[in-house]
Every structure is written in structure tokens, then in C-alpha cells.
Write a protein that binds this DNA or RNA. Sequence first.
DNA 1: GCTTATGATCGTATTTTTACGATAAAGGAC
DNA 2: GTCCTTTATCGTAAAAATACGATCATAAGC
Lengths: 102, 102
Amino acid sequence: MDITHEVKSYDLTTDELRLMQMMKALGHPARMQIVRYLSENPQCITGDIVDVLPLAQATVSQHLKVLRDAGLVCGTIEGPATCYCLCEQTVAWFKQQVGDLF
Amino acid sequence: MDITHEVKSYDLTTDELRLMQMMKALGHPARMQIVRYLSENPQCITGDIVDVLPLAQATVSQHLKVLRDAGLVCGTIEGPATCYCLCEQTVAWFKQQVGDLF
DNA sequence: GCTTATGATCGTATTTTTACGATAAAGGAC
DNA sequence: GTCCTTTATCGTAAAAATACGATCATAAGC
């Protein structure tokens, strides 16, 4: 009658969690398209992205936040607008992690 | 007063959509752990995976389906059990796509 | 045949994500 | 100062994902 209280929990490293967050961020068509657009247009403002997506401005802004939180893009305030670009450093890290994965 | 009826829609290639599906599949801690476990234990049955995750059997089975649909793992029926393993081909394709991305 | 073991699927409750309009904040033109 | 532009955030409705118990299906052992 010996019950072992085995506390189960996810067992992932910090790197794996960070990688997972990026995967999740890229696992949505709008965000995938945003990132691709940014790779083709290195410097652009929110409005440019809104124009190429079938979504309202508020929704795009929300998606940009997800990408920012994942570290994949960074936005710098440029007057009244915000200039977005890919975070090359994070993208490089991401690629390397995926390459080493599995 | 000329209104251009511009039908907006996501503009992603088939490859990008497939890649996105894999990203989404890997964007969950349980599934990330399953894939890592499979990479360390190339041959195992569903029960083995259930044992290392803090989830019910039904939930794990559901996660395995997501990974199967994404093509990342394949399960072959082995008697009453199902033997799972990573789909090396898909993983290779995934890595290559990520490498070329952005 | 009956029983046990294994795992997929069903039905459903809960949680999270997604999407939008409305509003707020901040900078430039005047 | 007043507008106008730009974009983030708020509040919320709808959709999707997650998790679980219960059930079903299949195969092996007897």
C-alpha cells in the first residue's frame, strides 16, 4: 500500500521553452506572413503590415506583440509610427537550435 | 469614388503552410517533450510516452495525433500496441526549411 | 469462447487564442 | 493651443485548443 507521490510535470530546458515559444509564435498564418514580409522588407511600419494582411489594425498589433514577446521582431518608435524589423540575433539562435534539435 | 474591391487573404505557399503546421505542432510543451523523448528513445509505444508526461492517456493520444497530422511522427501498429518513432524524412525537411527561412 | 492489455476516439468542460470596435496615448503639422 | 496620423491597449465575443473520463476496437493469452 505504498503510494509514491510522483509529481508529474513537463521537463523542458529553458532553451526548449524559449524555442517552443518561437514555434508557437510562428504557428499562425498571420504571424508567419508578417515575419516573411519583414524579411523581404527590412524596414517598415505597422501600417504597411496591416495593408498586406486581411486583418484589422488591432489584430495585427496583437500579433506583433506575440512576435515581440518571442523576441523574433523588434519595434522602434519612429515619430508617430513604429518601425519594425526582424531580430536577426534571435532568428539566428532559432535556426541554430532547430538545426541541433532531435 | 472608385472603390477597388481588394479581397484580402493570407498569402502563403504550400511549403510555408506545411512548415507552419509543424511549428504549431511543436509549439506546445507536451508535444515538444514527446518529440524529444522519441529522439532519445527511437522505438517506444504510447504507454511509455504516457508515463513520462503529466497527462491522461486520452490527452497524450490526442497530442500524438497532432504530431502525426503534421507528419513529424509515425505510428505503426505492433500487436495491441502502437510503436511510435520520429519521421526522419519530415524532420530533415523541417530543418532545411527553417534554415532557408527569412 | 472469455479476459486482459493497449490505445484511439467520442463527448464535453474548461481554458486559451483570435478578432474586432472603441478608446487612449503620443508625435507632427499647422 | 487644435487637428490629424499612427499604433498600442482595453473590453469582449467567437472560435479553437486542451484535458479528461468513458467508451470502443483490436490483439494476445488462456
